[in-house]
């Protein structure tokens, strides 16, 4: 038995409703562990279709799924893993116009995207709804994760005021597995109410050296997204 978890923690997971933006590399590992943990409702949004080049890391999608919608493919696997939970899949782009509707009454947002314009939309939605945002990102054998609590911690824009250029990026398949598991761990801890979250802490994974580093991030009083909060 773990202190603070037990049946009450499991019940909290059952009652939880989470929004996962992206069913790719990060989204695969995050959603698998949240589904098998018993998170009661998982809404996962991705409008892409599965391509051969995805299969090294997007473990929810298999060879037979090539050319199939990622949302549908993810929903099928997750539901088979846990038939007692509700999986909602939405095959849409996330835009400024629809994001609040997509998030709906979910109590938190998980950032499993592959581009910064959409990550910034998730950040704004989390701030507007006053709900946590669980950030993760990867490149090659490197990754980062942090947990954003609106009004309390640095927001995504405070941490990353400028996006990297839009470009294709190499990802070794294990990297989103590692970072996605960290994000899922943060989500579970938040829902159950145990442990210390990555508040104002940017966890940096260096897979080449097999080292984690922890950096302290700070709220930016001039931040264009959260500066006045």
């Amino acid at each position: 038995m773990m202190d603070g978890f037990g049946e009450r923690g499991q019940e909290k997971l059952k009652q939880a409703k989470v929004f996962i933006a992206g069913a790719g590399g990060l989204g695969s590992s995050i959603s698998i562990y949240l589904a098998v943990a018993g998170v009661g409702q998982i809404r996962i949004v991705d409008r892409d279709v599965v391509e051969l080049s995805n299969l090294n890391r997007q473990i929810l999608h298999w060879d037979k799924d090539i050319a199939r919608g990622k949302a549908e493919s993810a929903g099928e696997k997750l539901q088979q893993m846990n038939s007692d939970i509700k999986i909602e899949v939405i095959a849409e782009d996330i835009t400024e116009d629809n994001i609040l509707k997509l998030v709906g009454d979910c109590q938190l947002i998980v950032d499993a995207m592959d581009n910064f314009p959409t990550r910034y939309l998730l950040n704004k939605a989390a701030l507007k709804r006053n709900i946590p945002l669980f950030h993760g990102s990867v490149y090659g054998l490197d990754g980062m994760a942090s947990t954003i609590i609106p009004g309390e911690t640095a927001c995504l824009r405070c941490m990353f005021p400028e996006p990297p250029p839009s470009a294709t990026f190499p990802v070794v398949g294990v990297t989103p597995g590692i970072i996605g598991c960290i994000q899922a761990t943060e989500v579970i801890k938040h829902i159950v109410g145990i442990g210390e979250l990555l508040r104002n802490r940017l966890l940096v994974w260096d897979g080449l050296s097999t080292k984690f580093r922890e950096l302290t991030v700070k709220k930016d009083p001039h931040c264009q997204d959260c500066g006045s909060r």
Partner: peptide, 10 residues
């Protein structure tokens, strides 16, 4: 001193 950039990949 540490220098980094944001990462896009997911």
């Amino acid at each position: 001193v540490s220098l980094s950039v944001s990462l896009s990949g997911g």
